[in-house]
Design a binder for these strands. Structure first.
Lengths: 214, 214
DNA sequence: CCGGAGGCTGAACACCCGTTTAGCATCCTG
DNA sequence: CAGGATGCTAAACGGGTGTTCAGCCTCCGG
C-alpha cells in the first residue's frame, strides 16, 4: 500500500489510504465514522478535507487510477510478455488493497466507467501485441474479445468466495482462485470448447454483413 | 413475474414479489419502507409476516430457488439441446426480475452459495450431456470448467452496464450484452485464443501429477 | 510578540433505518 | 352469537448515517 515518498504520511494521506482499504474490503456502504476510527481521526476531519463522503470517494478514484497508470507505464515489454499489466499487479500483495478497491468501483452502478476502460485498454493492448507476435489468434472484433477476457478475470475475482475451496482465508482467496482456474482456462484458451465450428458458422451465416462495431 | 395460480394474489405474495423486484434492481440495501410503499402496504406488515427483513429475504431466496428448480425440471431434452436451462430462462422477460434477484444474491457476500451451486450444477449437466453427444470437447476437470463458464456468463451480466452500448435502456441491457458478446464468445469457444499449446503444455509439465479436485 | 491561517475536534442536527408495541378491524369457528 | 385468531396499521423507539458549526490548538510570517 504505502506510497513511495514517506512525506506522504500526513493525516490526509492516511485517511485516503484507510478509505481505500475499508471501501475495498467492505464496499462503499462503509461509513465515514468507521474510516475515521480506523485512521485514528475525527469524522469531521474527513469532511473538512474533502467536503463530503463522495468527495473523498472521488479523490480515492483519482489516486487509485493514477497509481495504476504510473505502475503500468513503468513496465517493460519483457515483463508484459506473459501477462497483462493488471494481471501482474494483481499478484503483488502490496497492491491487494488497491485491486480490491478497483473491484468495488467497477461493480458500483454509478461508476463513471474509468476503471472499466482502463482494464479493457490494458488487456486489448496485450492481446494486440500477442497477436502481432503470433501467440494469439486474430479475431473479427478485438474490442469485444478484450472485454470478454476482462469479464472472465474480473468475474472470477468478484465470485472468488464461491470459486475458492471452502475455508480459504481471505488473504489467500485470489491466489486460491487462480490456482484452481488457470488449468481449465488454459485448456479453453488453447483448444476451445466445441468439437466443430457448426455453431459459429450458423451464427456467421445468420448475420452475414455484420461489422465489428458501429 | 406473476405465478401460475391467481389465488396467489394475497398481500403476502404481493409483498414477496415486490421485494424480489426491488432487491433485484436496487440491491439488498433497499429498505423495508420502500418495499412496503411499492406494495401499497404498511412497513409493519412485512415484519409481521416474516419477523425481520432478513426473514423476508430468506423467504425470497426460497421462493426464487424453488421457482427456477420447478421450471428447469419441466424442460425437455429437446429444449436443452442448444443452451442450458438457466440460459433459456434468462431470455424470458417474465423471469427478468427473478434473474436480477439471482444476480444480486449470488454476489452478496453472506450468500449461502445455494444460487451458485444451482447455476454450476445446471451448466455442468449441460456440458456433460453435450460432451457425451460429441459437441463439446472432453476436459480434465468438468467441475471447474463448468464454474468457469458460469463466471463468464454471470460476469457479463454483472458488468452489463459496461458491456452494453452507452444509452441502452435498462430493460434492454441484457439483450444488448448478449448481442455484442455472442460473436466473440463463439469464436473463443470454437477456435480458442492461443495459436499453439505451449502455455498449456508448460503448465501441465510444471504440475504433472495434479488431480482434478481433492 | 502578535495575529491569522490551517489542521483538527466535540457536539449537535436532521434524516433514515429496522424493529416494537398497542390496538384496530375482520372473519372463521365453536 | 360470542370469542379468539388473523391481517393489518399508526406511532413511536433506539441507533446509525452524512453533514454542519463553533471553536479549539499549533505553527508560521510580519
Amino acid at each position: 500500500m504505502r506510497s513511495a515518498d514517506d512525506a506522504d504520511l500526513t493525516a490526509r494521506a492516511r485517511i485516503r489510504d484507510t478509505a481505500i482499504r475499508r471501501w475495498g474490503t467492505d464496499g462503499f456502504g462503509a461509513s465515514v465514522r468507521g474510516i475515521a476510527a480506523d485512521a485514528g481521526v475525527s469524522p469531521a476531519l474527513l469532511l473538512h478535507h474533502w467536503g463530503s463522503k463522495d468527495g473523498l470517494r472521488q479523490a480515492c478514484d483519482e489516486y487509485v487510477l493514477d497509481r495504476f497508470a504510473r505502475e503500468t507505464d513503468r513496465m517493460t515489454a519483457q515483463e508484459l510478455a506473459t501477462a497483462s499489466a493488471w494481471a501482474i499487479l494483481d499478484r503483488d500483495p502490496e497492491f491487494a488493497p488497491l485491486a480490491a478497491y478497483v473491484r468495488r468501483a467497477v461493480t458500483d452502478e454509478r461508476s463513471a466507467g474509468r476503471f472499466w476502460t482502463a482494464l479493457v485498454d490494458d488487456t486489448r493492448r496485450w492481446l494486440q501485441q500477442a497477436t502481432a507476435a503470433g501467440r494469439v489468434l486474430p479475431t473479427r472484433d478485438e474490442e469485444t474479445r478484450a472485454e470478454l477476457l476482462v469479464v472472465l478475470s474480473l468475474g472470477a475475482q468478484l465470485l472468488a468466495h464461491h470459486l475458492a475451496p471452502p475455508g480459504t482465508p481471505a488473504d489467500r482467496l485470489l491466489a486460491a482462485v487462480s490456482e484452481r482456474v488457470t488449468g481449465p482456462a488454459l485448456e479453453l484458451f488453447t483448444h476451445g470448447l466445441f468439437t466443430d465450428d457448426r455453431l459459429l458458422q450458423a451464427y456467421l451465416d445468420h448475420r452475414p454483413g455484420e461489422e465489428p462495431r458501429p
